[in-house]
Write a protein that binds this DNA or RNA. Structure first.
Lengths: 491, 491
DNA sequence: CTTAATTTGTACGTATGTATA
DNA sequence: GTATACATACGTACAAATTAA
């Protein structure tokens, strides 16, 4: 077959461009080949000729040719010339307008289908509210002993620099698992061995991991309503049917669960400090719940997200500590005690399930980080952790009182605060008839973050209310925020 | 009703135990109440009497009583005594031996069923091999510019301490997404905007996230065989049917895919440096693959895990850069360039799918970390990143040559190294007839890590071979390891 | 078949701007 | 600030392969 000669007339060089000339040539020629402007098998002009025509060195042309040869577009034959080896396959849809159109159609339909499928999981999206008062779940960062933290980090790095940079254990850094086990035993009445502790990237991942291990597509999950919607989204993402169970002052009542609609595989609760209402689950309800789980084979997810900060009396011990059947997965987090961007949490799983959790963990996200966990471990071992909690407890208690004062000052009659015994946020009931979303929107305009209670419920209607975080903000910030909140509530 | 007096004779204290005595008392009494050894309404002995009997301070007894009172088990009446308030509900199965047995049975069956269900996902587990030569995918940690890294971290913290401790954007720290986009554009020919970049906890999570967004239960995934089994486990965990596609020197051949067994939703490939064999996918195969994806509606996962280190010529540009239909999800990682325990990677997703990925991301693991990403961003902006890659490139090239020398010296005839042009590991073909697993086991005993090739394949048989990592080890370590490897290979 | 012209592939040396140590 | 390394660009030379006269 006679090889047609190709001219390459279409290619223009730009001397002023910062892009190297070799690369300009490479790109232009590749484009020409892929779009079939240069036919397969065609012979290119000699490098000499091209160098002369483009007024560059022959080496420059050869540089471009080399790259194209390496990528398989060209093939040089000594003495004969350089040829386009690569025949853009005829199947290649890009070359014909019809093919292109067909593909575009397929691609568009694919995306539409995907969007459709995912629609059902959408629900309430995570609102990215700004870091303004009174955003809930923000700890006091100003009071975090960052210098101490850095000191621990340095010590940890000095000791084990090389080993802390490599791959860690799937379930987490052992000294941290040990420290967490001790901590939970001492302060939360959790019964566990270090081996049962799983370190994960935040409590959200902990819940995810639990779902991925214990939950099968189509199974039923019972959740508190109102409750933590982040968990609902996770469960629904696994194809679970999430059924709301009403909550009152004694917490979730398992006897009011929709048993008729199918037995639960997972029951998600926050017994120490119900999210978002803040109630503590009563002892009777706890025992009923545990009994139901043991008798029915359901697992309980105990979300203990906020239990560290209790202002009256001793913290109640955990559900997990009462359980004797191995039905409870305990979920905790460091994000709210230390700082959120640390993104570390933990699970305590029943002893018999550790290996199953290890399997799913290694699928999601093989080898975890090491430096931060090692730092936390030391931070705990040296007692800074417990000390910081104690300090924050009294600080947050003060701030809760400040919030009460400010509400009494600026919002008498407009907002009634729930009596809160623990946590970092409280609920304020709106006395007027304005829907809470509307108040939230107005407050946002005034620079105050206060999510509406209605955002946390799916089925049961609540009186209008706001969730107010008081932990992360100074006295003046709280005062100011409540003042502006008062301006946002129509009287 | 007359309250019966209770004796508490059953309670024994253990002075030697590290558990505080208050807590021992608390637990023992709680246990007695819950198991109905102490009846509801019963009057306990006075704290004075108990203190005397147990030979502890009255304060200790009061501590235990306080806790039990706070939790709702007891109620003290001044002048009258302390009473058991909590009546264990009769439903409570734990109280009767029959109920206990029934629960135990349910619990045991639940766990067995779970184990059964999860069995199918088990497959090849992640082998936790020690950090010994010649373990693959270990970068040279000794040469990591840790001082510079710490400097960047410090600078980043100084600038934005408070904001770096709070919650970040779902898809990652924006400056890092921007830096990654620029880097990939310049060095990998990836076409992308910063908004398409998703920061995740390692490439494993990237693959997981992709599967959770694009893959539905029961759909088909095509994968290179041999290939990265971590990805297979992820896909199978989502209920996908994973079909192996053979690989040769030109990479995976889409024309040999098992089309008859169902159309693919996802195609997982490593075109720049096939894992584990190290071949580069030819241009024709690349275009065929892209064409197939665009025409069939499949998505391609391009795992570009190792492409930074190329020792001859320029790195080939990515599949993503050739794609015009938005069918490619590009997966990269920092773990192999910086250090593994950093656990950070990234995806580049098609522009139309960003919001879907954001949704799934927020389910898996809401708000990502900030300090490390910010540090990387600065590290990149200041050029340390590119510099470090360049340095490591020439270092690894040297080490590859050292490996070749050592093999020539100690293993002439026993092992033939694949000619490698890039990456951090290479393949050595065993010339004898011993199965590779056996050689691996012997090597492990001699302190050398060298995974068998057979571990990376599912269906197609390969000649026996070993995967040898040369990047993370010093000259003497490599030499020594090869010597010990020679002792492990029967001649 | 021989020969001369042409072409690639390889190997030098040099200059320059940039980034790095 | 200075020395060093590196990528880009340019020029020259020559061997090996091919082609056409």
């Amino acid at each position: 077959m006679q090889h047609p000669s190709l001219t390459l007339n279409m290619i223009q060089l730009d001397l002023a461009s910062p892009e190297p000339m070799q690369f300009q040539l490479y790109r232009a020629m590749r484009e020409a080949i892929v779009t079939k402007q240069l036919a397969a098998g065609g012979r290119l002009p000699s490098t000499r000729e091209l160098a002369q025509r483009w007024k560059v060195s022959r080496n420059t042309v050869m540089g471009a040719f080399d790259q194209l040869t390496a990528e398989g577009y060209l093939k040089g034959k000594q003495g004969a010339g350089t040829f386009v080896t690569f025949s853009v396959p005829d199947f290649y849809s890009r070359v014909t307008p019809a093919g292109r159109a067909a593909c575009a159609d397929v691609v568009a339909r694919r995306e539409a289908a995907l969007r459709q499928r995912r629609m059902k999981y959408q629900g309430c999206t995570h609102e990215p509210s700004p870091l303004a008062p009174l955003r809930p779940t923000v700890p006091s960062l100003e009071n975090f002993p960052f210098a101490l933290w850095e000191q621990c980090r340095k010590a940890v790095l000095r000791q084990g620099e090389r080993s802390l940079l490599t791959y860690g254990d799937t379930l987490g850094y052992w000294p941290l698992r040990r420290a967490v086990a001790t901590y939970l035993r001492d302060t939360r009445g959790v019964r566990c061995e270090p081996a049962q502790v799983v370190i994960c990237c935040g409590s959200q991942q902990g819940i995810y991991l639990t779902a991925s291990t214990l939950l099968e597509h189509g199974e039923t999950v019972w959740m508190e309503d109102p409750g933590y919607q982040g968990a609902r989204i996770v469960y629904e993402g696994f194809g679970a049917k999430v059924k709301p169970v009403p909550v009152d002052r004694e917490g979730m009542d398992i006897q009011r669960a929709p048993v008729a609609e199918g037995v639960a595989r997972l029951i998600h609760v926050s017994p120490s400090h119900q999210f978002p209402l803040g109630h503590t689950m009563s002892l009777e309800r706890r025992l009923r719940l545990l009994d139901y789980a043991a008798a029915s084979g359901a697992y309980i997810v105990e979300d203990d997200y906020d239990s560290e900060f209790r202002y009256e009396g001793r913290p109640l011990s955990s559900l997990q500590g009462l359980d004797q059947s191995g039905s409870v997965v305990y979920v905790g987090t460091f994000s709210k005690i230390l700082f959120p961007s640390l993104r570390l949490g933990y699970l305590v799983v029943p002893p018999g399930l550790v290996d199953l959790f290890e399997q799913s963990r290694s699928r999601i996200d093989g080898n975890p980080t090491l430096i931060d966990p090692a730092t936390i471990a030391l931070f705990m071992e040296e007692g800074h952790f417990a000390r910081h909690i104690r300090k924050m407890r009294s600080l947050y208690q003060e701030r809760l009182e400040l919030l009460h004062d400010a509400v009494a000052r600026y919002l008498r009659g407009g907002l009634e605060l729930e009596k809160q015994q623990c946590g970092m946020h409280t609920v304020g009931w709106l006395k007027g008839s304005t829907p809470d979303q509307e108040v939230t929107a107005r407050a946002q305009k005034n620079g105050v973050v206060a999510p509406p209670l209605s955002q946390y419920t799916r089925r049961f209607t609540l009186p209008p209310g706001l969730v107010l975080g008081f932990a992360g903000f100074r006295a003046d910030e709280i005062d100011n925020a409540v003042k502006r909140l008062a301006d946002s509530i129509p009287l």
